[in-house]
Amino acid sequence: MVEWFDMGGYEYFVWGSMLCFFVVMLADGLSLRSKKKQAERLVFSRFRRKNK
């Protein structure tokens, strides 16, 4: 199993790059969800104010 992750001395750089890729992509995914929730909350609040 371990030899699968062996990168001939470059483990830190290769896996660090992969980690960076996934962290940034994950951050993007999380911000997508928060943006959507924010927009939905605004629509709901506008709706409630209009129909009071």
């Binding site: 993007d28 995914g29 997508l32 943006k35 959507k36 924010q38 927009a39 939905e40 605004l42 629509v43 709901f44 506008r46 709706f47 209009k50 129909n51």
Partner: peptide, 29 residues
């Protein structure tokens, strides 16, 4: 990601429009 964000952006900027509220399942009385 772009389409997802663009949809949120449209909802956000058009939050007073009827279509945005209908899109979230809200029907005006």
């Amino acid at each position: 990601s772009m389409l997802h964000r663009a949809r949120s952006y449209l909802l956000h900027t058009e939050s007073q429009k009827q279509w945005a509220q209908a899109a979230l399942g809200l029907d005006t009385p």
